[in-house]
Structure formats: C-alpha cells, structure tokens
Write a protein that binds this DNA or RNA. Structure first.
Lengths: 153, 153
DNA sequence: CCGTTTTTGTTGAACGCTCAACTACCTTCG
DNA sequence: CGAAGGTAGTTGAGCGTTCAACAAAAACGG
C-alpha cells in the first residue's frame, strides 16, 4: 500500500524553517557565550545546574541523564571530562552496586556560580527580550505540547 | 559598576527548560530518523535541499553557508563529505577566482528525492501534529521574532 | 533457586563541529 | 600603480556526540 506523503504547505514550510533557524541560532549563540565566558559547552553547564539542584548535590548517572535529556553514553563521556576538570566526582551507589553517583564539587559549584549570571543574562537578552509576555506563554505551551507528543505516542 | 542579574522568574524558568527539552528532543528525533533512513545527518539534508532549490542546482559556498545558517568551515567540511558520497560536486566560480560553486549531482538529487517523503512525514508527525493551527502561527511569529532579534542588534 | 532478561554504566571508533591559522584573490584608496 | 585591508574558502587539531559492543549486577520467572 502506498501512503501519500503529507507535504508541508507554504505556511508550514515557512514555520518549520523559521523554527529551525531560530532555535539553531539561539543555541549556537548561548553555546558560544558560555564557551567563551565559562569554558564549557551548554550541555555541561546543564549537568552542573542539575547537580546543584539535587539533594546533597548528587544524582545517579541515569537520573542525571534523564534530567538533561542525554544518552547514557553521552553523559558518561561528559562526566569524565567534568571530573577531569575537577568540577564533578563519582561515587559508588550504596544501594545498587551497578550504580554511580555524580556529585558536584565545591570547585564545580563555584564555577557554576560564576558562570550563571552571564548565562542567565544571555538567555534573557536573546530569548525573553525578543518576546511579548503572551508569546512567552505561547512558547511554553507549544514546547510542553511538543515534549508531551514526542515522548508519548 | 555592578549590574544586577535579571534572574528568571519561575514562569520563565519553566518556559526556558520546556523549550530546551522540546527543541532538543525534536531535533534529535528527526536527526536519528534521517540518519537511519537516508544515511545522513539533518544538516547535510538541508544542504541538499538548498542546492535542489537553487537555479541550476548550484550555489556559491558562501550563499549556501548563509542559507543553511552554517559557518564557512562547517560547510567546507560538510561539502567535502557530500562530495565523497557523490551527492555534490565543486566547480570553480567563473566570476570570482576565489569562489567555489557547490552543485547537486543527479545522484544527490535522487538520494534527496528518496529521503524527502520520510523526513517530511517525520516533521509533520513530530511537530505539526502536536500543535493546533493557532499554535503553528504563534510558533512562526515567535521564531521570526527570535531570528530577527538575534541577527539585528 | 538458577538460568534468562533487563538495567546500569562504560568504552573506543567514527563522525561532525568549532576554532584559529592560513592561502589566494578581490577591493579600496592614497 | 601598489600597499593595506577585506573577503572566500580550506585545513588540521581538538572536542563532544553517536553508535555498537561490552561487563557487571539486579530483577524476573519457571
């Protein structure tokens, strides 16, 4: 059986390309700023943020992977680098002998605290300053609908 | 002089994280599908699309870089790989001896034509099917505002 | 229980991207 | 004209990600 492709009409085409360009440009800008000002990519910054919010600043690798939306492999490599930088340490999990805990060191916390204001300012300048309050609300609903739809069909 | 950080309020925090998660998940899903079905990452697919739309299926490297929102270096590496795959060829630019034209080969066009239906279907399923028509419109406006703001201050 | 399956996390290779350095050519202007 | 500066594109090194393969431990199921 042949399924006809449901092609994009001009409006959809325009929306898709605009979204592509905008999200790519935004992420690249923030990534570059973070790399320049804090010496780490945005993905690593996010790992530090999640650890800083966790009880005792530590999380199971798998929980950290879920929280940051990253694969286990990716997280493993990333934590290895963060560990080499002295920002994160690994510990054995006491309840599951397969498990590893990643924990944020004081150095890591200090680095994060130093990087946060600049990064937050970047997010505000490049994202929120461009949108009306109504658009911010719309963007939240759209994003939540997308995530919902992507993780639940 | 000390500038106070304009921190994100809880609503903004939620919006930012939702946007991050959604756009990352969407791009990773489409990237994986394209890699699986067509053997190329989304960035390469986009290059082929832009070339296919250009007059004579050829574009200057710099125009192609602008059209795909990529750095010159990135495009150079990418075209090198696409050339090795036989999907793109390079030609000297007749009017500027520094210039190079990238042109889509018949093989490249055929590969693109084979990949397009599946990819478009993915975009529809993962993006448009999750949103109401009003939200599609909102997303377009938001994206255009973002791009505008990012490229013009 | 004990074999099977699942879960957890790591590893190495291949790949794509970034960044800085570089060549070659074009443009501008004294 | 000719020097200075700008533009086009490439290159190689280093980094981060993916993918598949793997080891170890837990959970399951007869």
């Amino acid at each position: 059986m042949v399924l006809m492709t449901r092609w994009l009409d001009p409006d959809e085409q325009r929306t898709w390309r605009a979204f592509l360009a905008a999200s790519r440009a935004l992420m690249e800008t923030l990534d570059r700023e973070l790399q320049r000002d804090a010496g780490m990519p945005h993905a690593y910054y996010e790992i530090l943020v999640r650890l800083s919010e966790a009880p005792d600043r530590r999380l199971r690798m798998s929980e950290l992977a879920d929280a940051t939306g990253s694969s286990r492999s990716r997280l493993s490599h990333a934590v290895a680098r963060l560990e080499a930088a002295g920002w994160v340490r690994r510990e054995d999990c006491p309840t599951d002998r397969r498990g590893q805990l990643a924990l944020l060191t004081d150095d890591g916390f200090a680095t994060l605290a130093a990087a946060a204001p600049g990064h937050v300012e970047g997010v505000r300048r490049h994202l929120f300053d461009a949108l009306s309050p109504a658009q911010v609300d719309q963007l939240r609903r759209i994003s939540e609908a997308l995530t919902d739809h992507l993780t639940r069909p």
